[in-house]
Amino acid sequence: MIESRLPYEISLSPNAAAAPCARLVLKDRLKEWGLTELLDDASTVTGELVANAARLGQDFAVRLIPEDGALLIEVVDSSPNEPQIKDAFGDSDAEGGRGLLIVDALAAGWGVRRENRQKVVWARVAS
């Protein structure tokens, strides 16, 4: 069914339930789209991107866009600050910075782009 492969978007608030909520929606969408083989990596990537957005303290959106054998995950917020990979593994006292290293390791690609006045952090997870 073509309709079931349409992109899906959910708006979230910056709270402790954001990442679990996004992962639950992701699981349902991947099942509907027949992309369950992507669940483990996509769940981890989604959780990391959502956690980064939630730290900003503003509402944000998560877009899930099915592709042939892949999933494009986009997190949209209004922060002007672009995320950057930090070498936090060498510093055992670091409280953050590992999320994008994990995204970089699991995703087929990721990046940041501007869309109107918003920032879109995206990652592509492929089988």
Rank of each mutant, 00 (worst) to 15 (best):
D87R: 13
A70K: 11
V103K: 01
L72W: 06
D104Y: 02
G99N: 06
L101D: 13
E67T: 10
F60N: 00
Q58F: 05
I85T: 09
E67D: 15
E95Q: 07
V76N: 03
L100G: 08
Q58S: 15
F89G: 04
G96D: 01
G96T: 02
L100F: 14
A88P: 02
V76H: 10
V62E: 04
A88M: 08
S78K: 04
I73D: 00
S78M: 11
S78A: 15
A70E: 10
S79V: 10
P66L: 08
E67H: 04
D104F: 09
E95L: 10
P80H: 10
G90M: 02
G99R: 09
A94D: 07
N81I: 05
Q84T: 05
D93S: 13
E82L: 05
E82M: 12
D87Q: 08
V75N: 06
A94I: 10
D59S: 07
I85E: 07
V62M: 14
E95G: 03
R63S: 11
I102M: 03
L71C: 02
D87T: 07
P66K: 10
G97F: 02
G99M: 00
D91N: 14
E74S: 15
D87W: 08
D91V: 07
G96Q: 08
I102K: 13
F89C: 09
Q58E: 06
V62C: 11
V76F: 05
P66T: 13
F60W: 04
D104M: 02
L101Q: 15
F89D: 08
D77K: 13
V75E: 01
Q84K: 11
S78T: 07
A88G: 03
F89T: 11
G97M: 06
E67W: 07
A61M: 06
I73T: 15
D93K: 00
Q58K: 14
Q84Y: 06
D93L: 12
A70W: 04
I65F: 05
F60S: 02
E74D: 15
E67K: 03
I73C: 10
K86W: 06
R63V: 14
A88L: 06
D87S: 05
A94F: 08
G97S: 05
V62T: 11
P80I: 09
L100C: 04
L72R: 12
G69A: 09
Q84F: 06
